[in-house]
Design a protein around this nucleic acid. Structure first.
Lengths: 147, 147
DNA sequence: ATAACTGCAAAAGTTTTGCAATCGG
DNA sequence: CCGATTGCAAAACTTTTGCAGTTAT
């Protein structure tokens, strides 16, 4: 089990309580915006500044410890790098589901073959209507959505 | 051919020169951010305010005339509703390619069947490395990317 | 010791809002 | 004419930057 301290030291960075708190929050929250992460951290250590959260997320991402995903609306969300999955975001209710990346294996293969494009399936979310909303809104046009 | 004036009137909105200019710009530019659209509009009518561009894009989207797509980094991009396609964004060089939505037909079918999720293939972009960048950066990790 | 790191305040960038003036139907 | 629409200025957010003080090694 790779400790954060070690990962940092390997690249010449220092271990700080703030960094551990941010990483803990990211892992605990699943996918969360910088603001949500900051809130979670501040519940444990109120003095931690949001600036530090931004900087730490940036660093952790460069280290490959976390990654961010664009769920469709404005704010990017961060999650621990571990469990790779594709996100499904409902643009009606905002619900986020996760499905195995295998789902896109065929597509990835075709993109690679036909366009030379190497898909990173985890970076963006697929948008659509979740089962609940799809039913309710069957007639309604899907134009009044996010942002 | 459905005129903008008519589409507006059908829903009780008014036709204005600004609205035509914004729509023209969106169609002309392909996919563009509000700021780019504003720039294009202002080249023809310098007095048009960016506020109006935002409001107009919002309106046109509610009317189903344009739609916006999240290309992965911060800014949403708008494009005319017509030609449906899936976007491929290179998170290295930012290049945006378009591929037929058929690419995702199988995936859409599976999502529908297995999760009840109705995919809107055109709303988000698939992220990855384009053929140029994939070659160059074969060793490099893909972590220092967008935003 | 000393370079990395943090917090604070301020800046920068983007999108939204309030309002008086203007314009379309 | 009357209400929708616009431009402007200001507000509201989100993210970044500069810097002096603090901390990890």
């Amino acid at each position: 089990m790779e400790t954060l301290r070690r990962t940092l030291h390997e690249r010449g960075f220092r271990m700080t309580p703030q960094r551990q708190l941010v990483l803990d929050a990211v892992q605990r929250l699943g996918h969360a915006t910088p603001e949500q992460i900051c809130g979670a951290v501040q519940r444990q250590a109120p003095a931690v500044n949001i600036t530090t959260v931004y900087r730490t997320l940036d660093l952790l991402e460069r280290l490959g410890v976390v990654r961010h995903t664009h769920l469709g609306h404005g704010a990017p969300t961060y999650s621990a790098h571990e469990h790779e999955h594709v996100h499904l975001v409902c643009h009606r209710c905002g619900e986020v589901a996760e499905v195995p990346t295998e789902l896109l294996d065929d597509v990835a293969r075709r993109l690679r073959a036909e366009y030379g494009f190497r898909l990173d399936a985890t970076h963006v979310a697929l948008s659509g209507a979740c089962s609940n909303c799809a039913d309710e809104a069957d007639a309604t046009d899907a134009t009044e959505e996010d942002r």
